[in-house]
Structures are given as C-alpha cells and as structure tokens.
Design a protein around this nucleic acid. Structure first.
Lengths: 349, 349
DNA sequence: TTGTATGCGTTATCAG
DNA sequence: CTGATAACGCATACAA
C-alpha cells in the first residue's frame, strides 16, 4: 500500500537515486554509475538507457550534499569581496564566475561590506561548507592583528585540504594575483610629468591600506626622482571609496595649494573628486587635471575622459580562479602589470 | 596504535563531531546538542563547556553538507543574475547578500551572461544543491518557450519544497518584486513634457524585452495622451546594455530626425548614448537632452547629471530576499514605484 | 559488468 | 538530561 506509487515524484519528496534504481530495475550502484559514468564508464548501454530514462521520468535531481559526503569534496568555490556593488569587485566577480562556471563549480559569494572581521567569519562559513577553494579579493590593511587572524583562518582551511588564493598583497600565505601598483603608479607619474605637469596632489586613500600605499608610494617616489616631489600636505588620506575621493578633494581645495593635477588612487575616488571639483565651480580639465587607477568600465562614459592605469579585472578574476583551482603547477604569485592610459582629463601643458 | 592521537586535528583530516565527543568524554548526541543548542537547550552546563572546549581545541568545523543531509535542508540561497558586472545587478546583489547574511544564509551566485538558457541550468544546479530558496533577477523576454521552460524548472523546484522569488515581471509563477515601469516611465514623460519638450526619441532596448517594453510603452502612451506622440522611426531598438545604448544613438543620429530629448530605457544605455552623441560633436545638454532609468550609483559623477527614474535597487534586493524567505505572510507581488528625478541633462526649454 | 555492503558526519528518535 | 542508534542520499571497495 505504501510502495505502489513509483512513477510520480510525489508531492514534496524528491526522488532519490534508490527510487531511480528501483524504477529502472537495477541496483543502486549501477544507477549511480550510469548517472555519472565517472572515470570508468562501465555500465552496459541498455542498462544505462533504462537508468537515464527512469531518472528523467522521476525528475531525479542528484543531491549535491549527499555527493559531497560520499565523495569527500564539493564543487563549491567561495568568493569573498569587500563590496559587490563596487565596479572593481563586481568586474572581478564576473571573471571568477565565468572561470568557475567552465570548471563546473558553484560560486558562493560573501560580501564583507568593508568589514575585515567578517572576512574571517566567511572563511569559517566556507570551511563549514567544505568549499573546494576560496578566493579573497581586496587590498589588505597594514594591521598585523587582523592579517594574522586571516592568515590563521586561511592556514587552517588549507590544512584541511582547501585551496585558497587572493587578489591583493601576497601576505596571507596563499597564492595571489597582485597588481604591480608601485610600478604602474610610477609609470603614471612619469607620463604625467612628461605631459608637462609639475605640481601634484594625491588623494591617497586610507593610511594603512596597502594598495593605496603602494600606489601613493610608487607615484610619489617617481616624482621625487624627477625632481617634482609631492608636498606632504598635498597628500590627502580618505576612505578607498567614491565618497572618500569626494571628501578628500573638498579637503584639498580647502587647503588652497597650488596644484595642477590630482591623482586619486582608484577610479571611483577620482570620479568622486571630479564631482567635488565641479561642485566648487572648477572647469575640467582646464582648471584641474585628474588621474585615477583601475580603468573601470564606467570610465567609458565620463567627461572629460579619465586618465588612468588600466588593469584587466575580468582577467584578474580568471587568474585568481586558476590559482585557486591549482590548474597545473600554478605559480604562487601572478603579478599583473597596469597600462597607463592618457586621456582628456590630463591634457599636455 | 591508530586511535591514540586525539588532541591534534591532524594533517588534512578535519575533526568530526565524534572526535569532539570522544575528546570531551560525552556521547555523539550530547556533543551535537551542546554545539548548536537548537530549540531546546537541554545539556548540563559543565558538559556543554567540556564539549565547547574540546571543539575549540580540535578546531572543529561542522560539516554543513552533513548537516544538510541530517536536517533535510540547507542554509543556501541561490541568486541568478544576467550580468554581475552590470551596476543594476551588482547593486541588487548587494541588497540580497546583506539580507541573506542577516538571515544566516550563504549566497550562491549564478551569472548567466544574458543567456536565458543558462538560467534553467543554474536552477537545476541550485536544485541539486538543495538551496533553500532561489532569486531570479532580471527582466523577462517575450519568449513563451523560454519562459515556459523556466516556469517549469521553478515549479519543479518549488514542488520539492524550495521557495523562489524574482525581480521582474511576475510571469513565472513565483513571488515577485516588480518595478512599475509603465507608471514611472509615464511620469517621466509627463515631467519632460512639463519641462517644455515636445520632440522625443526612445532608445527602446530589445523588442521582446518586457522591462524595455513596459518602459517604452508607458513613456510613449503618456506622450500620446499629451498630444506629443513619439514617431515610430524615433524608437530605436537595441540590446539592453551600455553598448546597445551607444549603437542605438548612432542609429538615431543617422536618421537625422528632429529630436529634442532622448529617453533610453535604462541608465547604462543612456550613458552610452550620451557618449555617442558627444563623439558626433554634440554638446550636452545644449544640443540634445537625455533621460535614463534606474538611477545607478555611477550617475552621481556624470556630467551633465542625468535625469532618470530612481529605484532603490539595494532595497529591491532586500525585498526579493524577504519574499524568497517567506518572511511572515509575504505577499505574492511587491510593486516598487520609481521616482522621477529631473537633473541637468533635461533643462527646461 | 553488476550487485552488496559500508561509510561519509549530523540530526533526531527513542529508550534509559 | 544523556546515550544508543537509525536515518539522510550517494559513492565506492569488494565480492560475485
């Protein structure tokens, strides 16, 4: 009376592999083999058909959790970003999802909202999920304690067989894709100097933000070498986001320094800064030149077009995924070089 | 000889709950209860301490897959978007991750790259993962076959206990958050008409894209009522993305119609169109006015500032999550109204 | 090639 | 309040 219904999936209860096997008149093992003919496809054609047919009829959906248990591994990739709404991160996420997809992995997204503490928490969650690998995206802070906690969390994760990679400074004991921020910023500085600029200001991001520091450092060092050092008071710290750029520009203008060109350590900050300048009545680029870093897609539609350092964020996402999956003998560190792109915002003078 | 090591997690092998129980000198059941004191916290304080201590010592990490098996449900939320690199989707994703996070759910992100076929595939994947709920974000196409396939996939998913919600047209048999595109576009049209505009063009997106159609329809209907109908040749179809807006604007200019203001059915298209206009030598907004839809964050930094219809995408993400989680007696349909925001791109004339 | 029997790590049921 | 023990759904070593 209870086991007569065999062809209907039933209300709520999903068909199991046993159901499929019974429906097909084969054993559980055969059904299992037929459905994912893993390495060795050792099931007779007609049986395979029967099983596949039964599975289709019952609308069978393999339980990934059960498979994870039996196989001892999952097909999940964890992706941790600071802010998925920020174009820098969402573009990298696009690269990661693309690569993960072709590798047959599901991406679990964790958004820390710029809270470093939550990174550790998410690593724990992904550890619980037994994610096959984890990619942590975003510049590190110069905060030994926070970094240490993160390092330990990742170490524990890797010790248990997980593979991790990051986009940012290679200081966490995991493989990393790192942008040559210093070199690219120095190149940008030289290019601007070559355009005739001599009086610079830098919207430098957070004091302890390593990516910001690298960009500031490379930029200022190059200018110092060229004999056009950036005055200390012309380096304005602020958050690494759009509003941070805006704030910093307001502060810079308040200081009434004699500046020709402003370098914001990332594009969204540069855009916020340009808006601040306009709000103050400046005409761009006539009254002030601007340069950013990243070359986010949105730059295609701003005016004047923004000079920046181009990095291929989609590709960075792909590379990070490759590292995290250990494709071949993946190197420990992939260094990405940026390309200086001079545009209307920094006309020759 | 093999079971003497008890205090070390071991190289690779993660500590299991049994390990914790043994280390704490209690039974598996007690350890389980102590560690997640579910509804009824019925374990003696001292035992609980012993267990928690053992867990910490062994660096125990509960296996979410095993829990999923035993509990019969997961803490996973599936999120399907067309393009995570598009600000519209990434902003909604921010809202979803935020809400999911406070609900204690992990978000599995699926990026279809605008391929409708893949939506069905991802639903299958999420079904396999036994995701507790699925949120599908993005306007539907007027394609009965595709919609039908999707509808069936979602129906099957829900029949097995999953909860689904979508952001877009409520045509899939699941709860939905739908923007009142027609109403908002009509309001925008009236506002522009009130500004003195009489000759309109519409960069209308794909012919069969429902969101595009609703925005086109609402806009044109309102203008027709006002006695300023949009000429058929002034409605240019194109993809629903930035480049689509650019292409459509090029085509519009090629037609040399007498147009005062261009309405692009979303902001990224409007931005692409403005760039195309500039490339053709137009000065904005003097030579041509523009309006978009969505009010993406990036608009804060474009010039002239763009008139648009503001919708709170982060909130839409939160709402969709609420629907998907069935918070309280969630309604079947949440209609979001947009707010017309007149900016510099459409000066009075 | 196919079938049987075990184990994966937890939760939950049912006795003590 | 605590402890055995039976599921949960699947993969696989082993036997036939």
């Amino acid at each position: 009376m209870t086991s007569t219904r065999t062809t209907v999936a039933g209300n709520g209860r999903a068909a199991t592999l046993s159901d499929v096997a019974r429906e097909a008149g084969v054993s559980l093992a055969t059904a299992s083999r037929a459905i994912n003919g893993s390495t060795n496809r050792s099931v007779r054609a007609d049986l395979r058909e029967r099983v596949l047919g039964a599975a289709a009829r019952l609308n069978y959906s393999p339980n990934a959790n059960a498979q994870a248990m039996a196989r001892g591994k999952t097909a999940t990739l964890g992706l941790i970003v600071h802010d998925i709404a920020d174009p820098f991160f969402s573009t990298i996420a696009a690269g990661v999802t693309e690569a993960a997809d072709t590798a047959g992995l599901a991406v679990t997204l964790a958004n820390t909202q710029h809270d470093a503490e939550r990174e550790v928490g998410f690593i724990q969650t992904l550890q619980n999920l037994r994610a096959r690998s984890i990619i942590v995206v975003g510049g590190r802070q110069d905060d030994d304690e926070a970094n240490q906690r993160l390092r330990e969390a990742l170490a524990a994760y890797q010790e248990r067989g997980g593979a991790a990679a990051m986009v940012g400074q290679p200081i966490l004991g995991v493989k990393a894709v790192h942008v040559d921020n210093r070199g690219a910023s120095a190149a940008l500085a030289r290019a601007l100097h070559g355009q005739g600029y001599r009086r610079f200001a830098v919207l430098g991001g957070p004091e302890r933000h390593l990516t910001a520091a690298e960009r500031r450092g490379g930029f200022c060092a190059a200018l110092a070498e060229l004999g056009a050092p950036v005055a200390a008071e012309a380096i304005i710290p602020s958050p690494f986001v759009r509003d941070g750029g805006h704030e910093a520009m307001v502060e810079l203008m308040r200081r009434e320094l004699d500046v020709e060109v402003v370098f914001a350590v990332n594009d969204v900050m540069a855009l916020g800064a340009m808006t601040a300048a306009r709000e103050a009545g400046l005409v761009l680029p006539r009254d002030m030149a601007f340069a950013g870093f990243d070359d986010i897609f949105a730059l295609r539609d701003v005016t004047p077009t923004l000079t920046t350092v181009r990095i291929d964020m989609v590709e960075i996402g792909r590379q990070a995924t490759a590292l995290a999956l250990g494709d071949g003998e993946a190197p420990d560190l992939v260094t990405v070089t940026g390309e200086v792109v001079l545009r209307e915002s920094t006309p020759a003078r």
